[in-house]
Amino acid sequence: MSSTRSDRHAADGKPFEDYEGLAELFESARAGDRVALGRIAETLAPLLWQVARAQGLDRERSADAVQTAWLRLLGALDDIRSPRALTAWLVTVTKRTAWRMREEQRDAELVGVPPEAQPTDPEPLPDEQAVFTDRRARLWAAVDQLSHRCRELLRVIAFVARPEYGEISTALGMPRGSIGPTRGRCLAQLRKRLLADDEGSWR
């Protein structure tokens, strides 16, 4: 592991794995403690952001979609039994909300604009790509060749702890077995592309 990486990503850390801490916060939140709920919101913000953005929604509306899911949660918290069910619930509602907002935005944009001028996926701009190292540029190229569904799945799963892969992929509407406990089709495709790239030093 290179130390530069962990330094640069110190604030983001890895996918949340402190289940004991989360379970405690969750119990307090269900008992009405909005501060505890806020702590969970901090933990899940990076994940839910990627869920919204993967629907092709702009940044301002993506933040609204994440907030909307949390506000809806206030009325649903009594029915949610575990921290993992909470994460899955929020992923589902964020995705649906973002998708609906995207459709509305698309309808509004379509008025008087030729179809070919419509934006599709939120791909990074060329100068953003330039900040990548060579290895990362190759990763980007490999991810870019995946289907839209696979790209969304891996983008979101990358922000989730391993025991939750199955539940979260179901929450995204993916078929059972898309990822976890086995690798699944999407990750296998990406892995093969990276391994076939002999300059990439993935082995």
């Binding site: 990076p46 939120p122 990074p124 993935w202």
Partner: peptide
């Protein structure tokens, strides 16, 4: 390792706004 890199990639290209939480 691949998923970790995928995460780093998206954090670089499309990070959540710091004020979101």
């Amino acid at each position: 390792a691949i998923l970790r890199e995928v995460r780093w990639m998206w954090e670089s290209v499309d990070p959540a706004p710091p004020e979101l939480a």
